[in-house]
Design a protein around this nucleic acid. Structure first.
Length: 299
DNA sequence: GTACTTGTTGAACG
DNA sequence: TCGTTCAACAAGTA
């Protein structure tokens, strides 16, 4: 599932490929994906170009060369953005030979034929390059946003956990104002810290040796510091490795490993704890979310 | 057929 | 007001 590291990886990939390219065509096969209406999006994009791509939390914001509108894209749970260069289509379809750039949910496979049965939107550039939006569960969206829409969307996000604004002091302040919250709820709250999702919350809690079911107000100073370090560590390491959902891509590119190989508790229910090796990882349904922890290591 | 999964929003509740 | 819980969105997997 795309969380901050996955979305950041997509952002970086697209920054290298689509910026400045003149948009020739926008095809929308599932209109409900475009929150602001497919026609308005097409009108605004065709003949225009993306000039920058920013990320806030898990939201991507594309700025446009003409006009002051921007395009907001959220992958939610199963969205994928795949950039397909024109040359690839005529030269070689074998994996790894092109410069296909992609990210998001790993199913369907990133190297499957495009457009696929889950392709809902295609941006075609004058160069012949194409940007495909796939979304199996159709929860994600595209939105042509006015300056006000954009500001409203941005106002809902808390601090970027990998930015210089996210300091230990800042984190402690956040904790102090949420002492009555459950830790997992607090960490998942995008208005407090932007970009953490279910996977990295469980991972960060494991690294910090704190159970996600704890009340924020019960955390010792030592545990708060450990959590701060854990959040930074887990996210930055995953960005380095291009996220958790990029196994296929990394193998193709010849890179070693990806963050899925470094997950310590997520998806390890009933398997031995990688720290104490004495206890099996617990998985419970907590606040509606699958929650993993080691009952021995995390108090 | 049933349960389960996931991010986010919004409504309902104490 | 605040925090939590639940439903909703969709569809594949076990």
């Amino acid at each position: 599932m795309p969380e901050l590291p996955e979305v950041e990886t997509v952002r970086r990939g697209l920054e290298r490929t689509v910026l400045g390219q003149m948009i020739a065509q926008v095809d929308v096969s599932l209109p409900k994906i475009v929150k602001s209406g497919a026609e308005a999006l097409q009108l605004s994009l065709v003949g225009n170009a993306f000039t920058s791509i920013e990320r806030r939390g898990k939201l991507l914001l594309f700025s446009l060369k003409e006009g002051d509108e921007s395009v907001l894209v959220h992958l939610k749970m199963t969205g994928q953005l795949i950039f397909e260069p024109a040359v690839r289509k005529n030269v070689d379809k074998s994996i790894g030979s092109g410069e296909r750039v992609f990210g998001g949910h790993p199913h369907p496979a990133f190297d499957s034929a495009l457009p696929g049965s889950y392709t809902h939107l295609i941006v075609t550039f004058e160069s012949g390059d194409q940007l495909f939006y796939n979304d199996l569960r159709q929860f994600g969206y595209w939105q042509l946003a006015t300056v006000q829409d954009r500001a409203r969307a941005l106002s809902k996000f808390g601090v970027e956990p990998l930015s210089s604004h996210f300091t230990e002091e800042h984190f402690e302040q956040l904790l102090a104002t949420s002492s009555r919250s459950v830790l997992k709820s607090f960490l998942l709250n995008q208005q407090k810290i932007a970009g953490l999702g279910n996977i990295y919350v469980d991972e960060a809690c494991f690294h910090a040796r704190v159970r996600p079911t704890r009340l924020v107000g019960s955390l010792e100073p030592r545990e708060k510091r450990a959590l701060f370090q854990a959040i930074r560590h887990v996210l930055s390491r995953s960005v380095e490795l291009r996220g958790t959902t990029f196994r296929d891509y990394l193998n193709v590119g010849g890179n070693t490993g990806n963050y899925a190989d470094e997950l310590k508790v997520y998806g390890r229910a009933k398997k031995f704890c990688l720290r104490c090796e004495a206890t099996n990882v617990s998985k419970i349904k907590f606040q509606g979310r699958g929650t993993h922890f080691c009952a021995k290591c995390q108090l």
